[in-house]
């Protein structure tokens, strides 16, 4: 069975640069959905309405002013300003390791080869808050396949840009810079996993990980590494940044799981960003609600141990 992907449109990059068009399309989708729901038609529109109800998009303003970008600051509001000097054009990605086609790839060329689509995903941070973001990007797996991984490629490791001149918090030692994240090969190839280049119909703002970031919707947000400059295919488990910093608190898998608490706080509920102060927290779902699509990746694994 092909997994259901929460995709509302397959748009070319050229079509989605206009924010007004994007907004009106959203309004159209919403109104038709409400209309068909109102008529009680068991149609696609109703399914869409349910989906919209489940995934209420967070205001862009909140997503751009609440970021964990420790390369710039540990304060979530600061990266918005501090990340402005980062130059994201031109951008190159070094692809290496257990593949047949290693090389230094220009982001422009990568983008030419991969059609951009919109994915509306819930993003759940390990700090027990969540937001819903319309990302623009392309499936990571389709791109990785083109590099022809060899049979020895078991994991993919991603590295963030290291540039302490601009990324001023890299001058401190709060984390072992540069930031490294990784996925098991099957997780990386999963159709839900994307590389994002934009959100809300526009290019990614710098503080949200421009020009290229990972989005793995069923894992805690720290897996979704920003400003990627290296993709390395390897046979052994990558040593990832947060795991190195506190192994008992941040595992390699970091699958969203309400049953497995962080050693210092519960993960059973999450604060929805942008909600009114009287809105109760929502119950966190196993695999962040994407279990139907991804649970099979972890068959036979003890999720309470492989955190």
């Amino acid at each position: 069975m092909k997994p259901t992907i929460h995709t509302q449109s397959n748009a070319l990059r050229a079509e989605i640069t206009d924010k007004a068009v994007f907004e009106s399309r959203r309004a159209f989708i919403k109104s038709t959905a409400m209309l068909s729901a109102g008529l009680m038609l068991p149609s696609l529109g109703q399914a869409q309405a349910e989906l919209n109800d489940k995934l209420t998009i967070t205001a862009r303003e909140h997503v751009t002013h609440y970021t964990n970008y420790y390369e710039f600051s540990t304060n979530k509001q600061d990266a918005t300003e501090l990340a402005k000097p980062l130059i994201t054009k031109p951008w190159r990605v070094e692809v290496s390791g257990e593949i047949e086609k290693p090389g230094l790839y220009h982001l422009d060329d990568i983008l030419k080869a991969n059609a951009i689509e919109e994915r509306i995903y819930r993003f759940r941070c390990v700090e027990a808050w969540s937001m819903v973001v319309p990302w623009l990007g392309f499936p990571l797996g389709e791109m990785l396949a083109r590099f022809k991984p060899t049979s020895r490629a078991k994991f993919v490791e991603f590295t963030t840009l290291y540039n302490p001149e601009i990324m001023i918090a890299q001058r401190s030692t709060i984390l072992d810079w540069p930031y490294v994240e990784g996925l098991r090969m099957d997780e990386a190839m999963h159709p839900l996993t994307i590389l994002a280049t934009g959100m809300y119909g526009e290019d990614l703002p710098n503080q949200n990980g421009a020009p290229l970031r990972l989005i793995v919707p069923w894992k805690y947000g720290f897996k979704s590494i920003k400003a990627i400059v290296k993709i390395h295919f390897r046979e052994t488990l990558p040593d990832t940044a947060w795991h190195k910093s506190a192994p008992s608190e941040y595992g390699f898998y970091a699958n969203v799981n309400p049953e497995v608490s962080h050693p210092r706080w519960s993960q059973s509920r999450e604060r929805v960003l942008g909600a009114s102060i009287f809105t109760p927290k929502r119950a966190t779902e196993l695999f962040n609600g994407y279990g139907q699509q991804v649970a099979s990746l972890y068959t036979g694994m003890d999720l309470t141990r492989s955190i």
């Binding site: 608490s261 210092r264 706080w265 059973s268 604060r271 109760p280 927290k281």
Partner: peptide
């Protein structure tokens, strides 16, 4: 009142899991 929305269940779940 706001974070736990007066929920006793949430209190019982969260507090013992959080030494802080």
């Amino acid at each position: 009142a706001l974070d736990l929305s007066w929920s006793w269940a949430a209190f019982v779940d969260e507090v013992p899991k959080s030494p802080y």
